[in-house]
Simulated scan of single mutants.
Amino acid sequence: MDGLREVYDPEIPIDIVNLGLIYELTINDAGEVYIRVGATTPSCPVTDDLVYTIEQVIKESVNAKSVKVDLDLETGWTPLMMTEEGRETFKRKYGYDIVEMWRLQQGDQ
């Protein structure tokens, strides 16, 4: 997970861990890594680059026999998925609380 904190979303320049885009991560006894990640928008034009970067970071971070990255565009991302650190980073960068704004507009879903 530390290495994945170096991978930034192209739409919102916050790392994919703190944005809450890591939906599943497993490493089995055979050294095979599986990761299911999302995107902040299903129409993100650089998802191939994102998948490639994630694969490279995992290969550099752990001694993996294989790495499988599944891009999940079905699960809709919301700001409610962000970590507290991600939320604070967003507030510092943009000057407002995206989670509070979401709750005001959408309700606490």
Rank of each mutant, 00 (worst) to 15 (best):
D2K: 15
D2L: 15
D2I: 15
L4Y: 05
R5N: 13
E6H: 14
E6P: 07
V7G: 02
D9G: 12
D9S: 11
I12Y: 01
I12W: 02
I14V: 06
V17L: 04
G20I: 07
L21P: 04
L25Q: 03
I27P: 03
D29E: 12
A30S: 12
A30N: 13
V33F: 06
R36Q: 12
V37G: 04
G38A: 14
T40R: 01
T40C: 06
P45N: 13
P45T: 14
T47N: 01
D49Q: 15
D49P: 04
L50T: 01
T53Q: 11
E55Q: 14
E55I: 06
Q56T: 05
V57Y: 04
I58N: 02
V62M: 11
V62I: 14
K65H: 03
V67I: 14
V69I: 11
L73R: 15
E74R: 06
T75Q: 01
L80A: 09
M82Q: 01
M82N: 01
G86E: 03
R87N: 01
R87K: 13
E88L: 14
E88D: 09
T89L: 12
F90D: 04
G95A: 09
Y96Q: 08
Y96M: 09
V99F: 04
V99M: 06
M101F: 15
R103I: 06
R103A: 08
Q105Y: 05
Q106C: 13
